[in-house]
């Protein structure tokens, strides 16, 4: 891996520089993350592992701009996430980050199609335009038959597929997944991972947080966190 610096720069998708996050719990100050420096390259499928409370979700939230570091910096696809307003961060989330959650988090009264199109609708696009793209994405995740279904008419796996489609609607620079299969059985989970893997194969950068080694094993790189700090960083090339 002896690429030139320039090349590395070009291939960097996310960079954390000495990022840390402290929380206040009553009088105590808890360090959820401390001094994390991490470079995630384009096209990487990074699994972040660690026991609960190790700060892995906090790390993901910092990358996705849901939370801000109390120290250090986060740079997403060349755009620094510090020193900008909440609205600007929100726009970054809307256009450059796709989120997949453990609890699917679909809006219960919207159809699959509307749920998928939501980020673009928020961006002010008319539904007619959004609809086409949303349908195409739903087909891509294997839900062509479920376009007009509401979440309560879908299985867990299907809901998560819808959520993935929603995360992809804005062609995000990075797809962030927080325990995406935590609420699914092994088999359904596997299908979700295969879907993520195939997305990754087509160049989608993915960062996934999990405490499940089976899930983490899908990554091309695995970082384990311990007490708010990266402990191991395994990079597995294609053998």
């Amino acid at each position: 891996m002896d690429r030139s610096d320039e090349k590395t720069e070009e291939l960097t998708m996310i960079e954390l520089r000495h990022a840390g996050r402290k929380f206040r719990q009553g009088l105590r100050e808890v360090k959820a993350l401390s001094d994390v420096s991490l470079v995630i390259r384009k096209g990487e499928f990074l699994s972040i592992m660690g026991p609960s409370g190790s700060g892995k979700s906090t790390l993901l939230n910092l990358i996705g701009g849901l939370d801000r570091p109390t120290e250090g910096e986060v740079i997403l696809d060349g755009r620094p996430l510090h020193g900008i307003t909440d609205d600007q961060v929100t726009l970054l989330r809307r256009r450059h980050v796709g989120y997949v959650f453990q609890f699917f988090n679909l809006l219960p009264l919207l159809t699959a199609c509307e749920n998928v199109g939501l980020p673009l609708l928020l961006d002010g696009l008319p539904f007619s335009k959004v609809k086409q793209k949303a349908e195409a994405l739903l087909e891509k995740v294997g839900l062509a038959e479920r376009i007009e279904h509401r979440p309560d008419q879908l299985s867990g796996g299907e809901m998560q597929r819808v959520a993935i489609a929603r995360a992809l609607i804005a062609d995000p620079a990075v797809l962030l997944a927080d325990e995406p299969t935590g609420n699914l059985d092994s088999h359904t989970g596997e299908e979700i991972f295969l879907l993520l893997k195939s997305l990754n194969d087509r160049g989608q950068t993915i960062v996934m947080v999990t405490h499940d080694p089976k899930a983490a094993a899908y990554g091309s790189r695995i970082v384990t966190l311990k007490d708010g700090h990266p402990a191991q960083d395994i990079c597995i090339g294609e053998d």
């Binding site: 295969l194 080694p213 983490a216 094993a217 899908y218």
Partner: peptide, 18 residues
Amino acid sequence: MLHLKHMNRLTRRKVALK
């Protein structure tokens, strides 16, 4: 870590198989 690497290998093989 060894186990994890092992799992990663198995997973890749599985993905390839699929």
